[in-house]
Each structure stands twice: as C-alpha cells, then as structure tokens.
Measured scan of single mutants.
Amino acid sequence: MLDDRARMEAAKKEKVEQILAEFQLQEEDLKKVMRRMQKEMDRGLRLETHEEASVKMLPTYVRSTPEGSEVGDFLSLDLGGTNFRVMLVKVGEGEEGQWSVKTKHQMYSIPEDAMTGTAEMLFDYISECISDFLDKHQMKHKKLPLGFTFSFPVRHEDIDKGILLNWTKGFKASGAEGNNVVGLLRDAIKRRGDFEMDVVAMVNDTVATMISCYYEDHQCEVGMIVGTGCNACYMEEMQNVELVEGDEGRMCVNTEWGAFGDSGELDEFLLEYDRLVDESSANPGQQLYEKLIGGKYMGELVRLVLLRLVDENLLFHGEASEQLRTRGAFETRFVSQVESDTGDRKQIYNILSTLGLRPSTTDCDIVRRACESVSTRAAHMCSAGLAGVINRMRESRSEDVMRITVGVDGSVYKLHPSFKERFHASVRRLTPSCEITFIESEEGSGRGAALVSAVACKKACMLGQ
C-alpha cells in the first residue's frame, strides 16, 4: 500500500517536472537572447534605426563620474514606483581627507489618484512632500541643488532636461508624456511658492545606482535594477552614441532593455503563462523582457503555473481556492519566502493557508518547484541581457580580458534567497573573457542622484555659470 502511494507521488512529481521543464533555458538559448539583445542595442544607438529599435539606448548626458572633490548639501528625489523618497545628502571631506556622503531620508507613498490623475496632481503632491521634508529638517530658507531620480523612459536633451516617452509600472498621470519632466517639477514648486529649489540633474535609477557604486569602486561602469521592473545602464564610447554629437570619451546610456521583445525577438521563448500575464497587464505587448524578470510579474506567473497544475490534477487534489483564482493573489514576496523555507515546509504551508488552501507535504514541495522554475528562468533571462552589455563593452574597448564592476539594486536581487547566485553564475558562463565584480548599492537611487548633481554643480562652477 505504502509502495503504491510512494509510486503515485513519484509519478505525480515526474509529471510536474515535465510541465515545469518549459521554463528551462539551455545555454544556447541564452546565447541567442544575448546576441539578439546586442543587435537591438546597436539599432538603438544608431541614428537611422533608433526610432524602430525596441531597446532605445537613451543617452543620459552623464559623462563624468564623481571624483571626490564636490562638497555641499544636496536634496535628492526618487520616483520610480508607488513609494517616493526625499533625501538630504551631505557631501563633504571625511576623516583623513576621505570623501564622505551622509544621508537623511523619508519615504512617502503615492496615492492612487496622483498616479493615475493628471501630471499637475502628481507633481503638486511631490512638491508637497518636499515642503514637508524641508519643514522637518528646518531647511526651507536654503535654496538647495536638487537631483531627481526618475525611473521611467526619458529622452534627455541635457542633464536637466528630459522628455517622458511613456509611463510604465502602473503610472498613468495624463499630460506628462511628451513633456519635460524637470519643467513639470519646477512648475509645481513655483505653484507652491513656499520654498526654492535648483533642479540641476535628472537621472534614471540605473544611472543613480551606477554612480553610487562608483563611489565604492571606481571600476563600476554598469548599473542595473532588478526590482519591480528590470533595466540597466553602462558607459558607452561616445563615438557609438549617434544621437549625441561628439566622439570623445564616454557617456552613460540608459538601455531601457525592459522593452526588448516588443518587436518579436522573444516570441519563441514566451510561454502561455507569459501571454496571460501580458494580456492582463496595463501595457499589453510592451516591456516583454521586463515581464519575464521583474517583481511586478513574478508572483503572478507562479500563480498561473499553480492553476495549470491544479487543472492537471497534480496539486491540491485538483481544487483551487477562490483566493488562488484571484489575479495578483500570489505576491512576489511569497516566491522569495517559499524558496527561503528551511525544509520543514512550515513557511510554505503558512503562505498557502493564507490563500485558503490546506496543502499536503507533496503540495508544498511542488509549489516550491514552481517558484524555483519561474525565478530561475528570470535570473537566466536577466543574465543574457547583462552578458550582452558586458561583452559589447569588452569588444568596443578591444580588451582581451576586461575587469568590470556592476552596481545592482532592486528588491528581487536583494531579497530573493537564490536569485543573485543563479544570476551571477549564468552571467559568468556567458562572459568567459571578463572578470566581473557585483556590488549592491546602498540607498543607491538617492545618493547617486545627489552625486550626479554634485558633478553638475562642479561643472557649472568651472564653466562660470
């Protein structure tokens, strides 16, 4: 009897593995994704193909990295998701002549009506938060230079001027797309009239992360975010950046690689679950690469896999709870928690219980395998993109072996128990001629924006502006 049951459990697990095998990517698959990513990057950089390229390769006008001589107080704003952060950054000489960066910050959550109302409502709310922060720190009387981390696709015309191309991540505030974001912020500050600010720089969160990590390690020339969304930036040779005049030196390019796949480059790798996630998203047909990796989508992918296993009578005796059938019910943090389970399955059992399920031991094991399959594919897909960037940098610099540091931020990278190990191992397999160091950014977005502002202020002083 026991043997029969054991055989049935083994057969069930084997069927589960057959279904989950769809998520496995072979090294040849990853090399294919990497080569296609490089081709799209090239198209994004070139003037004649930029418009139709899915990977936009947006110039950021960040050319210099901090040298350690900029000092002063800077205000930093960070808008990239449902939370908005205001930070005071003091850049100065530390002990023994070292450079020191001290920060104080406060988080504000953005109400739904500000995210989806008008641009005026959104930026009025942001300036209200700045006003509140300055009151708390008794700094209303000071006109501070301000660095703005704005983590949406922007076409820069200068370091302090950028046109919002399109909202992502659930934002829909009308009247912002096609307009200068810094102008919208300046107008809102003017409307309030109770404080003055000098907006000197606007950067993407990947750029802010790279600059913040450069402060720790001067070989950091790539910034990457794996959180709600997924994106990367890197220092490109100016001669390859056709959208900006000049051939000397390097400029940081914001790849906006989340949109890779929007022209069909990933079609052969998309599964039924991916198509369902895409169809029910706020932007169907867009940001397809990001939807395979980002935390906004990972939990939902797992939920759809679990429903398939229920329908195949391989999980929960073929019956799903009402909660499990509800879109968004299986949160991405559950994926991390399930994979963090120590082996007694308590954590998995508790999560499934909150979803109205009474799982068996085998159910718990199957749910864990589903989570591992989805998150491992995410790590491997992400590795193909980064390997594409790094191999490109090595080739354009004609280096036999390139040493490089990548600064990384984002909740999936930082909080998932195995993502970074799987990701690092896969990147290294795909970049055999590179020695890569990964560092995690601390308060990256805010500190990085302030350091970019410090560079901009120093330049302005040198130019006598």
Rank of each mutant, 00 (worst) to 15 (best):
G246W: 03
V367E: 00
S411F: 07
E96N: 07
N313L: 08
A454Q: 14
G178R: 10
G343K: 03
S353T: 04
S281E: 07
D311R: 09
R275T: 15
F148P: 06
C252V: 07
V199F: 08
I439D: 01
K169M: 14
D278N: 15
L386N: 04
G227E: 05
C129Y: 08
S127F: 00
A378W: 13
T405L: 01
S76Q: 02
D409R: 06
A188K: 02
G183Y: 04
G343W: 01
L451M: 08
I126K: 01
A201G: 06
E265L: 07
G227L: 01
R36F: 08
D311E: 12
P111E: 07
D205E: 06
I293N: 07
D4F: 01
E331V: 12
G295I: 07
I436H: 10
G407F: 02
E442G: 12
G162D: 13
I211M: 04
S445C: 12
I390D: 00
F269G: 02
S373E: 08
V62I: 05
I293K: 06
D42R: 04
C457G: 12
E256G: 09
K56V: 08
A450D: 11
Y297A: 14
M41V: 07
E440R: 06
G464K: 11
L165A: 11
N204I: 04
T437L: 12
R428N: 14
L276E: 09
A259Y: 09
C252L: 04
K458M: 13
S398M: 04
E40N: 04
R85Q: 06
F148G: 11
H218Q: 03
A201P: 00
I110A: 12
N204K: 13
E322S: 13
Q26L: 10
M298V: 08
V253H: 00
N283Y: 13
I211R: 00
K143V: 00
G223K: 00
D135W: 04
D262V: 08
E319F: 15
S100P: 07
F330V: 09
D311A: 10
H317G: 15
V367A: 02
G178S: 14
E157I: 13
M238Q: 00
V401H: 06
A208W: 00
K13L: 13
A6V: 12
G299N: 10
D124A: 03
G193M: 01
S340Y: 05
R5H: 14
A454D: 12
